[in-house]
Each structure stands twice: as C-alpha cells, then as structure tokens.
Simulated assay, not measured.
Amino acid sequence: MDRDATIFRLMPETALGRHTISLNYMAIGVENIGGPKAHLTKTPLKANTDLIKWLSKKLPIEYVIGHHVY
C-alpha cells in the first residue's frame, strides 16, 4: 500500500508467497510504504482496515498478525 493508500496487488490470494515463517501456506501479506521518517498516516491505516474487512468477507480469515520492523 502506498502512502496515499493506493493498493497494489502483486500476487493473487491463491499464490503461495514467502511472507510468514511456517504460515506461508495460509498467509496474505500486506506491506505498507513508510519508515522511521515516514510514519503511516490515518489515510493508509484506514485503507488497511477496509482491505482487511473486504478480505474477511471473501476468505475465512481468523487472525490478523502485525509487526513493527524499525
């Protein structure tokens, strides 16, 4: 997701990617553009929430796991 909340699909939900160790077979990765000097604003945070709600209607999502990398 870009800083203006534009969402880019890089892989379909049905493709196996390398996102979460030991959960790759059932994980969907959502990456946000940002960093220590470019924190997420309310716009992409709301878009993340909306995306998770949309995916939850489409797929049997049980957990949402986040991480902080810096």
Rank of each mutant, 00 (worst) to 15 (best):
L51W: 02
K53C: 12
M1I: 13
W54T: 14
D4W: 01
D50I: 06
T49C: 12
A27H: 06
M11V: 07
K53A: 14
G66I: 11
K58P: 03
D2A: 14
G17N: 12
K53Y: 07
E62R: 15
I7S: 01
V64S: 05
D4Y: 01
K57Y: 05
Y70W: 14
Y70D: 11
G17H: 12
M11N: 15
K57H: 14
R18M: 08
M1K: 02
S56C: 09
E62V: 06
K46E: 10
H19T: 09
A38G: 00
P44T: 01
A5L: 02
I21W: 03
L55S: 03
I65M: 10
E62C: 07
K57D: 15
K37D: 15
H39Q: 08
P12H: 11
N32A: 15
Y70K: 01
K46S: 11
A27G: 06
T43Q: 12
A27P: 00
T14Q: 11
K58C: 09
G29Y: 07
N48G: 08
Y70M: 09
T20H: 12
P36E: 13
R9P: 00
L51N: 03
V30C: 11
G34N: 05
H19G: 15
S22W: 08
A38E: 11
D50M: 08
P12S: 15
P36R: 03
I21K: 01
G35A: 07
L40P: 03
G29D: 09
M11L: 13
N48C: 14
A15S: 11
L16M: 11
I61D: 05
L55K: 04
M26C: 14
G34K: 00
V64T: 06
S56A: 15
K53F: 10
H68T: 09
E31R: 02
T20D: 02
K42V: 04
I65T: 07
H19I: 14
Y63M: 12
G35S: 07
E62G: 05
T41L: 06
M11H: 13
K57C: 10
S56T: 06
K46Q: 14
T41M: 04
A47F: 02
H19S: 08
E13C: 06
T14N: 10
K58W: 08
A15T: 10
R3Y: 00
A47T: 06
L55E: 08
S56E: 06
I52L: 13
P12K: 12
D4N: 13
I65Y: 11
L59G: 00
A47G: 08
T41I: 04
F8N: 10
V64G: 03
P60K: 08
Y25G: 13
H39W: 07
G66N: 12
K42Y: 04
L16P: 01
K46Y: 00
A47N: 03
L10R: 12
L40I: 02
H39M: 12
T14L: 03
P44S: 02
L10P: 01
I61T: 02
P36H: 06
D50L: 13
N32S: 14
H19L: 03
V30P: 02
K37G: 12
I61P: 01
T6D: 00
L51Q: 03
L51P: 01
S56K: 12
G66P: 07
T6I: 07
N32I: 09
A15F: 09
I21L: 09
L16W: 03
E13D: 11
V69M: 14
Y70N: 10
A47E: 09
M26W: 00
E62M: 09
